[in-house]
Structure formats: C-alpha cells, structure tokens
Amino acid sequence: MAIVETNVPASQKRTGKHLVFRLAGEEYGFPILKIQEIVQWLELTRVPRVPDFILGVMNLRGKVVPVIDLHVRFGLPPAPVTPRTCVIVLQVQRETGLLVSGVVADDVMEVVDVPVEQIESPPEFGARVSTEFIAGIVQIENRVILLLNAEKVLDSRDWTFVEKVLEEKDQAHE
C-alpha cells in the first residue's frame, strides 16, 4: 500500500532530503521541507484537558506553539530528557492556514538524501508505528529509517474527539 503525498512539491520528490532523528532508540525521518527549525529542549507549559501526547506549549519567539510527544503518540516506551533532547518545529499547510507545531526528538542525527526509488511502502502490519503515520521506509547501509508523514502526525482533527471523551469521562467520574 503506497501512501501518496499529494502536496509535496516536485523539488522534494526529486531530492528526497529528510532529517533523521532518534526516538526510543529507532531512527525516523521528516521531509526537510516541512521543517521550520530545530530548537533546544526548553521547559513547556502544560495544557490541561488535552490528549496526553500533547506535552504542552512553548514560546517560540513570542508565538505559542504546541509540542507533541511522539513516544506517546506512537505508543513507544518513554525516554528521559537528556542534553541531546530537542524539539523539531514542523509546519504544514492546512485549510485554515499554516500550522506550526513541535515534536520532541531524543536526538537529531543528520540530513540524508533519499533517492525516491529506494523508498519502500510501509508494511501493512508488523511495523513498530501505526502505518497511518508512515510515508515510507528506506534502508541505508544497515539502518532502517521510517519516513513520517508530517501532516498525519500533526493532524488534530481527531483531537476534538478526544476532548469529547474527556468530557464524558469527567461526567462518569462523579
């Protein structure tokens, strides 16, 4: 099953540059064109009553930007914050405008140039991450890198659903 990214500019299709980062000991990649910047880990402000994969919000030069914990989102074992922990700030286009969000990475490795023809479709099952987030898999030497779909990872459309569940939980709670 190939996932076609419809809104990827042609230039990216050709070069296929990806930023590789580490998460719970495994390697992942985001298309470089979706990345706005990488910032050092800084203390976040927690937001109540949001899904638990949202770690909080941070101040990015006066803008308030949410930060997502992919460990939780992907169901991976949690990792402690180390000096190498950082936040990758992504931007994706949505109908309502440009959405800027950060994701936590345990470590940022390098930018790799992935030839398009080497990208394989993700396996339908058996992958360590739900296939909906994966754009493809690439093998470089002995490394296996999961290329992520930034839009899907940041997609908050199902979050409102989470909000509803929380409300119901509150009601049931008493």
Partner: peptide, 20 residues
C-alpha cells in the same frame, strides 16, 4: 488553530519571563 477547543482555556500568552 493548533490545539482545537479546550474547555476551560481560552488562549495563551507569553509573559515577561518568556514562559507561556
């Protein structure tokens, strides 16, 4: 835009100490 509607929270602000 980024987090959807959160009951009980109307927004955020960046204060003088740089914290949100």
């Amino acid at each position: 835009e980024s987090l959807g509607r959160i009951t009980g929270v109307s927004g955020a602000s960046v204060l003088a100490d740089g914290r949100v």
